[in-house]
């Protein structure tokens, strides 16, 4: 009898475990199921990705509708965003909004969330990091409402998944080449010089007008959005040599590593520049917000917020707030660039 009780208890436990097990295996198989079908399509995407012209022309094409809607809101939001609120007060905004993804966009999104929640007391907005790739997969799988990304969704997701996401460009971010302050005499590098450095051909600073000091390359991981943008616009898609560069996971660690490593070169978003590193020009043009706006400084990209399909009222309100004039001073304060101030929208 005792034995029976034990076996009964054990079987209950095993049964419940099995239930959890099957439930969980449903999850991976659910996620891996699309893999099976999309695997063939991923290969072409990754092969077309490195050709910058192709993806640049196709991306605005495929996301033409969202860009068209997002761009006008960017300029008209100032008048639009505040007005619907008083008139629409009968139904105040409420609910929760979860966004995740790009760590580069996170501080800005978090600031926006705080201010947005101050305006709408019934709304709760949470902002998570995790990286652009995870942000895009999560919004695609429906785990979150808004996926933040440094790059176009088509760079990360299989084409059919990327097509279901709607792009909202929220701001522009510029990237600067940064050097350890010990590298004196170098104030700007040309594209050819940068390619030569990052592919491991030039290995000493004296070849580009600096001191006699070995060059130490500090990279972001190959999957990083920042590295993608930098490779595309600063290095013209050149393949960086592996095995000669240190890799740092985040902008913060890149900055402190460049600051402390003699002869170091890396790249950072404008928002991370400070006195501990020397930011230098590209092709003779200084890395300033003004030069990005007027199109002379080429290393910049859009920051994206993706929604699954058409955004809900709440999502749209938050996205509107991100590009509103109310929020523009914050964007500028954090050294991002509001899209409304850009005179060029392509590289």
């Amino acid at each position: 009898m005792n034995l029976r009780k034990i076996t009964a208890l054990a079987s209950i436990v095993i049964l419940s475990l099995a239930m959890v097990l099957t439930g969980c295996q449903a999850a991976p198989s659910a996620t891996s199921a699309p893999t099976a079908t999309t695997a063939p399509t991923t290969a072409p995407t990754s092969t077309t990705a490195p050709t910058p012209t192709a993806s640049v022309t196709t991306d605005p094409g495929t996301t033409a509708a969202p860009t068209a809607t997002a761009a006008p809101t960017a300029t008209t939001a100032p008048t639009k965003a505040p007005t619907p609120k008083p008139t629409a007060t009968p139904v105040p905004l409420s609910g929760t909004l979860i966004s995740a993804g790009s760590t580069a966009l996170q501080p800005l999104a978090q600031q926006a969330a705080t201010e947005f929640m101050a305006l709408h007391s019934l709304v709760s907005v949470t902002v998570n990091g995790g990286g652009s790739g995870s942000g895009l997969s999560q919004v695609n799988s429906g785990a979150i409402d808004i996926g933040n990304s440094d790059v176009y969704a088509s760079e990360k997701l299989p084409a059919d998944a990327a097509d279901t996401l709607v792009d909202h460009k929220v701001c522009v971010v510029g990237f600067a080449t940064v050097l350890n302050p010990g590298v004196t005499g170098v104030t700007s590098l040309t594209q050819a010089q940068l390619i030569s450095i990052f592919t491991g051909v030039t290995t000493n600073w004296n070849a580009v007008g600096g001191p006699d000091l070995a060059i130490v390359i500090i990279n972001r991981p190959a999957s990083s959005g920042t590295r993608f943008t930098y490779d595309k616009y600063a290095l013209n898609g050149a393949v960086e040599a592996t095995g000669i560069a240190l890799t740092e996971d985040s902008s913060g660690t890149v900055r402190s590593t460049v600051a402390s490593t003699p002869g170091a070169i890396s790249y950072l978003a404008f928002s991370y520049l400070d006195a501990t590193v020397t930011a230098i020009g590209f092709n003779g043009i200084a890395p300033t917000a003004d030069n990005v706006k007027n199109g002379t400084y080429k290393i910049w990209s859009f920051e994206h917020m993706y929604t699954k399909g058409t955004p809900s009222t709440l999502e749209q309100a938050f996205l509107n707030y991100m590009v509103s004039t109310t929020f523009a001073p914050q964007i500028i304060a954090l050294k991002y660039i509001p899209i409304s101030q850009m005179t060029v929208l392509t590289h």
């Binding site: 996620t31 891996s32 699309p34 893999t35 999309t38 695997a39 991923t42 990091g129 995790g130 990286g131 652009s132 790739g133 995870s134 895009l136 997969s137 695609n140 799988s141 990360k156 997701l157 299989p158 998944a161 991981p221 190959a222 999957s223 990083s224 959005g225 890799t247 996971d249």
Partner: peptide
């Protein structure tokens, strides 16, 4: 390499 690339690659791609 897992921590650096996991968050930046999308689920279901060969890289991930």
């Amino acid at each position: 390499i897992i921590t650096m690339d996991m968050g930046n690659t999308a689920t279901g791609t060969p890289w991930n």
